[in-house]
């Protein structure tokens, strides 16, 4: 194990007058194509949306400037806080389970000697590219309270029926399962790419130390892919809070708004033509998600 093969945090060079001109110009050239596209199709719509969030606009005529009105409406609306709470609960239901599954699968798939790797990898990816509405059909069938396959299995085991889709306690776990099913493959790919950058000599050295498998994973693998894990967590936090298609097709946000996620609540403003409130809602969500992500990054850093 050599020191050079250990990834370490980026340490950008200090700005220096002594650097050659090519080196000072290079980064601008490298980001130029991206910046061009970003200014045109990223910044402009974002500023438009920011402005929109201070107006009352339903898509026709001129927008009326209302100041912080949309923001105060949302911040004082129980429905807004309910949507955040729903997403927070879903986050807790989804992220730990998904990370453990994805990490275990990725570690196993990282083994070049594993047979049927292609099959497994494809199996985990396929849900991601299967149209949600097609899947929603089977979800409704599987989780129907009286005639669904899942309750039939529970019944055979002597367990009571569960109102998967029709009670506010169970609708969230049902939705969480759908989301885990749909997006775990995505996380597996990301974690796998992180694992593949680990030099195999690291493991060999550890094996010589006689470290057990789980301990090796915890004390070597996880720290080595810490950045990748952090990235995956931030990404999934975003995805969970922005999630709208899953509840839209399976529960329409019900029962009793228990699955009206932050994303669906926002989506509803927009599809109902209340574009100003929708824009304000987006920025509130951005602030929240950013704070959450920073918090988690701090937390993970502290673990080092």
């Amino acid at each position: 194990m050599t020191t050079t093969s250990l990834p370490r945090p980026a340490r950008p060079r200090r700005r220096g007058a002594g650097l050659p001109i090519t080196r000072r110009l290079a980064p601008y050239v490298f980001v130029a194509p991206f910046v061009a596209l970003f200014l045109a199709f990223g910044i402009y719509p974002m500023l438009f949306t920011l402005r929109l969030s201070f107006t009352n606009w339903h898509g026709a005529g001129s927008a009326e400037w209302v100041g912080w009105d949309n923001y105060t409406y949302l911040l004082t609306s129980p429905a807004f806080w309910n949507s955040l709470a729903n997403s927070a609960v879903l986050w807790l239901l989804i992220i730990p389970v998904q990370l453990v599954i994805a990490l275990a699968a990725a570690i196993l798939l990282d083994n070049a000697k594993l047979r049927m790797r292609g099959f497994y990898r494809t199996a985990f990816i396929v849900p991601f590219v299967t149209p949600l509405v097609a899947v929603a059909q089977i979800w409704v069938v599987l989780f129907d309270q009286n005639y669904g396959a899942v309750n039939a299995v529970l019944g055979a085991l002597g367990l009571p029926d569960i109102a998967w889709l029709t009670s506010s306690e169970w609708a969230k776990p049902t939705l969480a399962l759908l989301f885990i099913w749909k997006t775990t493959g995505f996380i597996v790919v990301i974690l796998l790419s992180g694992l593949q950058s680990i030099d195999s000599t690291v493991y060999e050295a550890a094996e010589l130390d006689g470290a057990g498998r789980l301990r090796r994973i915890w004390s070597i693998t996880v720290p080595l892919i810490r950045r990748t894990l952090m990235f995956a967590i931030v990404l999934q936090t975003l995805a969970v809070f922005q999630m709208f298609a899953e509840p839209f097709v399976v529960t329409q946000g019900g029962p009793y708004s228990s699955t009206t996620t932050a994303g669906l609540y926002l989506y509803n403003h927009i599809t109902r033509g209340d574009l100003g409130t929708g824009a304000a809602n987006s920025f509130l969500l951005v602030i929240l998600v950013m704070a959450l992500s920073l918090g988690m990054v701090r937390l993970l850093r502290a673990k080092d």
Partner: peptide, 16 residues
């Protein structure tokens, strides 16, 4: 025009 939006209130309350 807000009819569909009322489902969050009226529609849900009927279920309750």
């Amino acid at each position: 025009s807000w009819w569909a939006g009322a489902v969050d209130y009226l529609g849900n309350n009927i279920q309750l």
